[in-house]
Every structure is written in C-alpha cells, then in structure tokens.
Design a binder for these strands. Sequence first.
DNA 1: TGAATTACTGACACGGCGTCAGTAGAGTGC
DNA 2: GCACTCTACTGACGCCGTGTCAGTAATTCA
Lengths: 243, 243
Amino acid sequence: MSANRSQVRRREEKEQRREEIVDAAEIVFQRQGYATAKMEDVARQARVSRALVYLYFRNKEELYFAICVRALHLIRERFVAAAAAAPSGLEKIHAIGRAYVRFAGDCPGYFHALTHLESHKPTEVAPDSIERAALDAGKAVHGVTIAALEQGMRDGSIRKDAGDPLMLALSLWAFSHGAIQLSISKKNLFADVGVDLADFTQAALRFGLRGLLPPTDLVPEPPSDARVRAPSPPRARTPRSRR
Amino acid sequence: MSANRSQVRRREEKEQRREEIVDAAEIVFQRQGYATAKMEDVARQARVSRALVYLYFRNKEELYFAICVRALHLIRERFVAAAAAAPSGLEKIHAIGRAYVRFAGDCPGYFHALTHLESHKPTEVAPDSIERAALDAGKAVHGVTIAALEQGMRDGSIRKDAGDPLMLALSLWAFSHGAIQLSISKKNLFADVGVDLADFTQAALRFGLRGLLPPTDLVPEPPSDARVRAPSPPRARTPRSRR
DNA sequence: TGAATTACTGACACGGCGTCAGTAGAGTGC
DNA sequence: GCACTCTACTGACGCCGTGTCAGTAATTCA
C-alpha cells in the first residue's frame, strides 16, 4: 500500500467527518433553533467530543455558514431543474420563484439559515473562508436566475427595458425571500385573518413578477404555469378560524 | 403632598428610567452590534448596575423588542408625513417606499432591529408583553400603507384588482425590506460592480411597484416623484472600483 | 420618628465557550 | 517486528456572561 494512497484516504475520511458534523449541526439547529443550540449538543449528536467540533469549525457561526453552503447548493440544483422544465424565459422565472417557495416549505431549517446569512453585516471575508464559499454559492444561484432573465429578454417574454439582469435577479431574490420570510413571521396574523400561507406567497410572487411582463401582456394573467384559479375576489378579510 | 400625587410621580420616574435603559441599549447595540453587546455594557452606558437592567427587562431579547417598538413608532410617523405630502394613492405609496429607504439609511440600528424581529419565529405572545407591543406597532404601520392603497384604488391611480390591501401592504413591506436588507448585506458586491446602493433600492422599489399601476399607465414611467433620470441604459456591469 | 414600601446593588452559582496539553492509534522506515 | 512520527481526537481548565437573590439605601406613609 503506497504512502500516497493512504494519504488520500486520510483526507477523504477527514472530509467525511466534517460532513458528519455538519449533518449533526443541521439536525440540532433544526430541532432547537440556532440560538439555543449548544456546541455540546452538536458534538453529542455527532458522537464526538466538543473539542473536535472546534477542530473543524472555529465557532457556531462557521457551522452555520457550512449549512448555508449546503442550502445554496441545493437551491441551485432545484432552480436549474425548475428552469429546465419551462420553455420561455418568463416561465423559467416563475418556475424558479415557485421552486424557492417550495424549498422554504421543504427545508425550513435551510431557509432560516439563509435568512441569518442575509442579515449578516458585510465584512471583509478571507478568500478561503467558509463565508467566502457561501457567498460564491449564492452567486451561482443568482447565475441561474440571470440566465433565465436574459433568455426572457431575448425571446420577448420579458420586457427588454426591465433593467439589468443582475440587479433584477437580486431584486427578485430579495422580494421572494422577503415575502416568504414575512409569511413565516406573520403566520399567526395570516391564521387570524383566514389567509393560506401558500396563497399569500403565490400572490405576492405573481404580483412581484408583473414588472417583468412586456406591455402587451400586462392586462391578462401571467402565462400557463400559474395554477388555474377562480377570478378570485380578494378572499382575505373573511375570518374563518383555522386551528 | 397627597399620597396619590407622589405615586404618580414615582411611576413617571420609573418609566423614565426604563427609557434611559432603552436609550443606552440603542447606543450600545448600534456601536457593537446586538450579538457582541453585553448586558454589562448596556448597564454601564446607562450608569446603572447590571441587576437593575434585569429588573426592567427579562433579557437582551426584550431590550431588543423595546427598541423595535420605538423604531416602528418612528416609521409610522414618517410614513404618515410622507403620505400626507403626496396627493394620489399611488404617489403616497411611492412616498412611503422612499421614506422606508431613507429610514433604513438614517437609522441602521433600528432597521437591523426590525430585521431581527421579522426573522423571529412566531410564538404565542403574552397579551401584555413587549413583543405584543411590537406586533401592534407593526400593525399601525401597515395601517398607513393600507389607507394609501385603498385611496389609490378609489382615485384610480392603483388598479382595483391588484389584490387585497392588507396582503398588498404586507407584500410591499416584505419587498422593500428584502431589497434594503439585500442592499446592505451585498454592499461589497455592489461596490465591486459599481452600482450605487441608493440607485439599486430605488430601482428595485419602482420595479416592485409596477404591479400596482393600472393598465394604461404601464408603459410610461411612474409619476412625478421618481427623480428625473436619463433613459438609463443598464449602468451596472461597468466596474468602476469604488472603495 | 419608626415602619413599610420601593429602587437599587454586590456577589454568587451556573453554564457555555474556546483552548491546550496530552493520549491513542495508525502509518512509515528500518 | 520495533521504534518513530504524525494526526485525529479527548478531558479538563480558565474565562466570561447570564440570571438571581439576599441585602442595603432611599423614599413615603402613619
């Protein structure tokens, strides 16, 4: 057995340990929330001493960034899949938006991690830090949206003067994230007033995307992908208690 | 001196102490950030023992909620003033949006506090808790927006089928907040790519508000309040290093 | 003036964080 | 097979911040 080969195996095992710790952190953060989760809890979940966790991650924050990286990779995958299934640029954007809403529903822990990331003060990040990796992963996600926007402007489904694709992508991201975030934090309010969370985010999303439509398409509803729904007289304000 | 009168004075003094502590907390949180600020720091800033702070607030979180209440009261004031200065409903909404952006610029500490509040998990809140007060203050803010939306639908500056005013107000809030939040967290990115923060938020805002316009107004730019600007070929992607 | 109430503090116990010297165990050279 | 080196890993320590409580000063009431 050559020295070289065992070195490689060593490195792989180390990477695997790292992943195991992140796995554990995911579970613990999901279970108890970031604020109340202790490093001890993560370590116990990973069946490892607390000191080892500190050997792989400087602190809880870094653990969180690692989770964000995972989240963003997953989002990118989903965005790519969603976009691939839609023909026009505009439809891709709609699909991406819906994919994000679905993501937030499927992986609330991941979504919350991203919220934490967004609300982080911008500091100079070291080039090989985990935070750097998270930012890069974020860029990759926006890349998918930008491509869809550019296609839409080419194929005419999106007005050409809507703005710079990068800025638009960021705006859309901010909008979607904000809407989903609000739908979570105002869950009680929505319940009181009898509005379904999914309905709200869908409506907010369609509302936000109206700015992309070319002038002629503005009056009718957005294209096929929007679920068929009755002309929808504003259904809020009809308190039907649900709980 | 009647016993009654001194009781009243006592109560007022106590309220004042409370305000002093919140003042101190504002300064400290602003200076060092919520995460790194210690109760000891707040107490020292307020020239008071740490134990006294705990007598008025259960923990740091509550201190934060108290700040949020202040922030929301201020926002409401500004929204009311902004709306009063604009004639049509749509223009009121634009003015409110710009007021929020200005607020975020003027009072970054307050804005950050609100972000924290938004990203808080919804729990059952006690009826007389500080968190309750914060939620109510939030409702009051949305009330201003809702009134403007309703006026706009009446005076024809906002399409009547845009949606339920409450839902719209929340969407707009979410959108604005998300956009501002992103402009903060992505400050570095914007600097790299040579985009002015204010330009981004303004553009994002106008973009987001397009969904309110009645069909006929859709092609031209939104009304007077938007600053005069050249036909604006997308100006991003022209990296002029600023730092 | 003394009793009672209220605002406030010092000091304590607890618990989590980050670190470091030290151990076990596998890999390497002879 | 034996000694060595290297590395993943741990136990235990000191530090710091939190939240609390008994106790003190100050003010009001009778």
